[in-house]
Simulated scan of single mutants.
Amino acid sequence: MRTKAVGVFMGSQFGSDPNFKIQTEAFGKQIAKRGLYLVYGGGKDGLMGTLATSVMANHGKVLGISPRNLAEDAIDVDKITKFIEVASMTERKQLLIDNSDVFVALPGGLGTLEEIAQVISWAKLGLHHKSLILYNINGFYDYFENWLNQMVNDHFVNIDDMKWVHVVNNLDEVMTMIDSM
């Protein structure tokens, strides 16, 4: 099966490193160039808004999914291909997972961490068989990767449970991995 929809988790802030935004814009261009469909949390701010805007500016397609309680933070519905408003964060995450063929995590905060953990744990439980790519811009996920390895080394996580998780350091690697799925 060729990847068609890329679910992306990322911050609703820009973060302290200007390269986070630069790489997010470049990722958006690559999503559009390859004819992939961006599936994301529907936010207008930070890296979320940057990615959606970049995909749309490059003639791509975007599905935004946002819960009602975050409606004021959502992107204008006329600025993306499709927007779905849902009742809860739980429903949002379920639709993000259901509508994506592969996941990419850009830098982000606690919401991004929660989404990463859910995707990994649901893969472990066999609820999906989709890969998660941690786009390690400027080493953002180095400590997280070390922590995952420590969980495996300390026998809290089975090495087989990590087969869906890939840490990559540059956009070419991200796109090569997506293209191979």
Rank of each mutant, 00 (worst) to 15 (best):
T176M: 00
I133P: 10
A74E: 07
V168I: 14
K4W: 05
T176N: 13
D154V: 13
F144Y: 07
V6K: 02
S88G: 07
I178P: 02
I133W: 05
S121K: 13
M162F: 07
D172Y: 11
D172K: 07
I116W: 06
I120S: 03
D78Q: 00
F144D: 09
G139D: 03
N19W: 11
N153V: 00
T3A: 15
V168F: 12
P18T: 06
K93T: 02
Q150A: 13
E85W: 01
H128M: 07
I137V: 15
M89I: 09
K33M: 02
Y37S: 12
G7N: 00
E25P: 02
G46N: 13
V55K: 02
F156G: 05
K44V: 07
F103P: 02
M162P: 08
T53L: 08
E145F: 04
N69Q: 14
N58G: 11
D142V: 06
L36R: 10
F14H: 10
Y141F: 15
H129K: 08
T81S: 15
S54K: 00
P107H: 13
R68E: 10
A52C: 10
K163P: 05
S66P: 00
K33R: 11
V62G: 08
V39D: 13
G28Y: 01
A74M: 08
N146S: 13
G49M: 06
H128N: 10
H59F: 11
Q30F: 03
L113Q: 14
L113K: 09
D142A: 15
G43N: 08
M181V: 05
D101E: 09
Q118N: 12
E173K: 08
K4R: 03
M10L: 11
V77G: 09
R92I: 00
D160F: 00
M1W: 10
A5F: 01
G11T: 07
Q94N: 10
N169D: 15
R34V: 04
M177Y: 14
S131W: 03
K4Y: 02
K61R: 11
K21L: 12
T81L: 02
S131M: 12
A105E: 12
L148A: 01
Q118P: 09
D78T: 03
K33N: 08
L113P: 04
N99S: 10
T50G: 11
R2M: 14
R34E: 15
M48S: 04
R68F: 04
S100M: 03
L106H: 00
I120G: 01
I80P: 06
K4D: 08
Q30S: 01
K29W: 01
A117P: 00
H59I: 11
Y135N: 04
M56K: 08
I159K: 15
F14S: 13
L125Y: 15
F9Q: 02
D78H: 00
S12N: 05
V77R: 14
G139M: 06
G108L: 14
N58F: 11
W122A: 04
A26L: 08
D154K: 14
R34L: 10
L171Q: 11
A123F: 03
E25G: 02
Q150W: 03
E114L: 04
D160A: 01
L132C: 12
L171Y: 02
M151Q: 02
Q94R: 10
S131K: 09
K93F: 05
G15P: 01
L110M: 15
R2T: 14
F103H: 09
T176S: 12
T176L: 09
L134I: 01
P18E: 11
